[in-house]
Design a protein around this nucleic acid. Sequence first.
DNA 1: CGCGACCCTGGACGACTGTCAAGGAATTCC
DNA 2: GGAATTCCTTGACAGTCGTCCAGGGTCGCG
Lengths: 205, 205
Amino acid sequence: MTSSPAHARRSPADKFEDRRRELADAALVTLADLGYARTSLRTIAENTSFSHGVLHYYFRDKVELITYCVQRYKAACVQRYDGVVSAADTAEGLATACGEGLAATLREDALLHRLWYDLRSQALFEPAFRAEVAEIDDALQAMIWRVVSGYAELTGRAPTVSPSFAYALFDGVFGQALARHLDGSDAAVDDLRANARDLLPRLFT
Amino acid sequence: MTSSPAHARRSPADKFEDRRRELADAALVTLADLGYARTSLRTIAENTSFSHGVLHYYFRDKVELITYCVQRYKAACVQRYDGVVSAADTAEGLATACGEGLAATLREDALLHRLWYDLRSQALFEPAFRAEVAEIDDALQAMIWRVVSGYAELTGRAPTVSPSFAYALFDGVFGQALARHLDGSDAAVDDLRANARDLLPRLFT
DNA sequence: CGCGACCCTGGACGACTGTCAAGGAATTCC
DNA sequence: GGAATTCCTTGACAGTCGTCCAGGGTCGCG
């Protein structure tokens, strides 16, 4: 019925999905480089070995492509951070690991985080992105809350903030650090580490 | 020499500047409505009584127009907030006024604040906006710090955070509240009020 | 081998963009 | 009054955009 292969049956149903992933990853590189507003489908295609027409073979339109990209971003980002934090076994160590993890991802994935803030802003205007952005926001909030909960357990004290409040505070600190880091400030990464470490205990007063 | 009237001498040198302001205000309305990426000069002109060509008579290019708009935004925004907060004469009253002021501007100027977050994200990609955005960021940080300083004076205790750290925290809270408010959450404004009131004392532990 | 189904190319489409220049209209000045 | 300056409109320009499609490849199965 549909001319577009929305569901591939042939090979383990994977060849199609694999290429989607490949294209989405290339798109992520381009998007992280230029930002949503300045990235065209042709530019994305230039960063692959294919021509621009192929994008409409694997994705209905630009929105579906970007949506798919964003979902991939989440999977990669959250999971990695949890590993860093789950190893701590003292309150001090957890606070340090928290700051360290944020500082590390800021240093290494700055461009991807920039894209995240860009897309989150776009979602304030473009309802098509709202759902995916909200989903990632929830995942990030849960990620932060795991840290807060772990800290509570190790100190034996209960947090005095809600999960969303805690997330908002960390997000504000991270966003500011990102802006400074991209602006060339060498102190941004270190400040983020210190600020995150400083912030955590304040959620228990 | 120059064909563009960069400096009007004739009438009190104001007719020109007045029209710039008029056009910039109309542009602000359109920008707040559609966001930076989706706003064209023709669309801006449609929200005025003039045709699209006039914009290039009063502004060199799109960047100068947007830059000019953003500067107007700052002037209007910061000044108003300071009035709300300067009236408080007790620590409790200041914390309440702080939350109240933020909640009020969230409710009344949500679209303008959305534009601010949009442009700040764009500045992460487009260096042309960096200077103006940084300037506004500094003004907002100073605005927050005036509240913190006032609170310190009224309580007789010294803040335990830096100005930029304090701003980052408030900014995170406000940004989250804005997103929820625009998403239709009725509790967003009240939560912002409560969260801001809650946050202030935490900067002194 | 031959025939489908799948994959990809490259060009074309109409719409939209920022920019600019030519010229008409309005205003101001002498 | 006329002339000069300022203001604004209109139409065009060279691009770019997302989208679509006709047509070649390419691959695997019968």
